[in-house]
Design a protein around this nucleic acid. Sequence first.
DNA 1: TCTATTATACCGAATGTTCGTTTGAATAAG
DNA 2: CTTATTCAAACGAACATTCGGTATAATAGA
Lengths: 181, 181
Amino acid sequence: MPKEEVIPKLIPVFRHCGYEGATVSQLSKATGLKKASLYHYFQGGKEEMAKAVLEYISHWIEEHIFAPLQTEKPALDRLNAMCAGIDEFYKSGQDPCFLAVMSLGEADNLFHQQLEQSLKKWLDTLSAIAEETGIPPQQAKENAEDAMITIQGALVLVRVTKDTQVFHRAIAKIPEILLSN
Amino acid sequence: MPKEEVIPKLIPVFRHCGYEGATVSQLSKATGLKKASLYHYFQGGKEEMAKAVLEYISHWIEEHIFAPLQTEKPALDRLNAMCAGIDEFYKSGQDPCFLAVMSLGEADNLFHQQLEQSLKKWLDTLSAIAEETGIPPQQAKENAEDAMITIQGALVLVRVTKDTQVFHRAIAKIPEILLSN
DNA sequence: TCTATTATACCGAATGTTCGTTTGAATAAG
DNA sequence: CTTATTCAAACGAACATTCGGTATAATAGA
């Protein structure tokens, strides 16, 4: 099995169990590869697996969430396309966010820089869209933060309530949050 | 050392490491009690320690966050008092929320019911305040959800950015979120 | 009062288990 | 043959947990 097929199978384990909660046995079962085979692909062990997953996700976001923002359509259309990507990425809120999961305990020590950079990218991208529509920089920055807060907060609520409606309602608000003043 | 003094010392470990990330060695070091002594107090082991912490926090919230809402002052004053309690509870966003931390991995299997009940209490309490000011029930419910989303989302952002200003800005918005229509 | 008993708080050392990781051999591919 | 994959088995380390015991203090009986 090629490495590109392995990484996606690692994702749900890290996502739902966190870095420390995810055991190599679970990762083995999830991929169908025995432990030694996993270590053949990832000589750095669990840490390298998590890092690979983070990079994979980073690219996924780039393609499926940021890319729709770079078209020539009106800003609102682009934002709605982005929201569709977000809904898919988080499975309507049923899948936790790596940003939230990996910023705890030992994982945060290992990956904090990467997480911080990833979040900054999100915020900058959203802020740029807001500025495009004529919103002043400081306001755009705060709107971007509010949008991210809404996404992350909704994920926590859905994780506890199991009510995906809350997530859809929250995501639907993203465009107006971003473009408000 | 009486048990009531032990529990608060367990809190920061679970909060920052999560349930699975928190080791009994860490808990021992944090409390100043040797492992065997911890097991003297908590015969159910780590699981009972976490449960005790959850109950302790539940009471703390009751007293410091919900109680200020039961006074006779105007709604806005009461909400501001609550926000002060929230800011203290989360140390301006520098301390993660148990709701978010304990709803992952094995911890979620063990404590999900307790977490769900706790969140429901939050939402119902906030919703009731909104209804008091004449906001219709359905709108009040959604406002309460939005308020919780803001709190939880801000906690995630601050954990990654280390920028407590984001948290203060988010908390300051809680009253208007709750009372909007 | 003095002593015997019980209960509580605590700890060093060991328990068995699970963890992440490594090894060396078997198999498959070219 | 050579190289790349896969595997069962085993590794030491760290884990949660238990055991046997000491120290202290409260309680009770004489």
